[in-house]
């Protein structure tokens, strides 16, 4: 641990933690609004959006990807509404149909297009490339104060940090109306909160988290982090303020434990191949949720009948 850790593990670990937190924060509200599936849907439709953006511009860079993903999200929302109305299918099923077929279309597009020159393939879409986001020029902890070395940090780190800070700021600023409209939308409307705008804003925020995290860590982590840490956190407390803190703690713990286990776990078990960090982080978050279900103090309340 030292020079090697800083060079190989520090940035992937930080990116993993930031991605986990950026997704867990809006996840708290999505789950309480019974919209957890939206996070799932967004992280899937991101793929075709990014592929189309790549085909149009020929480069992988932040803004085209962001617009492509946002465009895909809009198309998905329109399709879901259309299927729901025309086909008279319940929203959950409409959502399920739309995001799986859009994701599949993204996979087909990806296979048909020449992406050999860039790092964009199906596996990348699912698991990201967390392990490859290393800090080449780092020579130890001292590099943290070396401007030349700092300039060489992977750009994904800054992108993910910017997204995490933005999402944290939005969550803090809009905390009160978000909480109020999540609990009681009718009352929120009656005190003048624009509930439809807020609801859309939450989905857009989740989309920003998904797009920012997608490139670095893939969609598996995004889906897991939208749901697992907030769901486990809900079982730890009966106060939203505390729940959100727990969800951040669980997200961080999943990222750290998952990364370490993926890198060293197989070694400890006698195998010499590391496993996918993104896959392991998602697995750990699932295990935390399972443990919370079994042992957390407020597990009895979840699933309690509505309005009784």
């Amino acid at each position: 641990m030292g020079a090697e850790f800083v060079q190989l593990s520090l940035t992937p670990l930080l990116i993993g933690i930031l991605a986990a937190i950026a997704c867990a924060l809006p996840g708290n509200f999505l789950i309480l609004r019974r919209q957890a599936l939206i996070g799932d849907a967004i992280s899937h439709v991101v793929l075709p959006g990014i592929v189309v953006a790549f085909l149009v511009t020929g480069v992988i860079s932040t803004w085209p990807m962001l617009f492509g993903a946002a465009g895909a999200a809009v198309v998905a929302v329109i399709l879901i509404e259309a299927i729901r109305r025309v086909g008279r299918i319940e929203p959950g099923a409409a959502m399920g149909v739309v995001f799986t077929s859009l994701f599949a279309a993204g996979v087909l597009l990806l296979e048909q297009s020449d992406t050999s020159g860039v790092h964009l393939d199906v596996e990348h879409a699912l698991y990201g490339n967390l392990e490859s986001l290393i800090w080449f020029s780092a020579e130890g902890w001292g590099s943290l104060t070396d401007p030349a070395a700092l300039a060489d940090l992977p750009p994904e780190l800054f992108r993910m940090a910017a997204a995490a800070v933005l999402i944290l700021a939005l969550t803090l600023i809009f905390w009160r109306p978000l909480k109020l409209s999540t609990f009681d939308e009718g009352f929120a409307g009656a005190v003048g909160i624009p509930t439809a705008v807020l609801s859309l804003g939450l989905v857009i925020t989740a989309a920003v988290a998904a797009v920012a995290a997608f490139d670095a860590v893939g969609s598996i982590i995004v889906i897991a982090m939208f749901i697992c840490p907030p769901a486990a956190a809900r079982l730890m407390t009966n106060r939203l303020e505390v729940q959100v803190l727990w969800s951040v703690a669980f997200a961080t713990l999943s990222a750290i434990l998952g990364y370490v286990l993926a890198g060293y776990g197989p070694l400890w078990l006698g195998s010499d191949n590391a496993v996918s960090a993104a896959g392991m982080i998602a697995t750990v978050s699932g295990l935390i949720l399972a443990l919370a279900c079994l042992f957390a103090p407020h597990r009895a309340r979840v699933g309690a009948p509505k309005g009784s």
């Binding site: 600023i173 009160r176 009681d184 005190v191 939203l240 505390v242």
Partner: peptide, 29 residues
């Protein structure tokens, strides 16, 4: 609103619900 229109399993306390009535005064921050 109608009592049954909200999810009473929401993680919050009685006092916090009453404070929601002061939203127009408290605003965002």
């Amino acid at each position: 609103p109608q009592r049954a229109s909200v999810d009473w399993d929401f993680p919050t306390r009685v006092i916090d619900v009453v404070l929601m009535g002061l939203y127009r005064e408290l605003g965002l921050l």
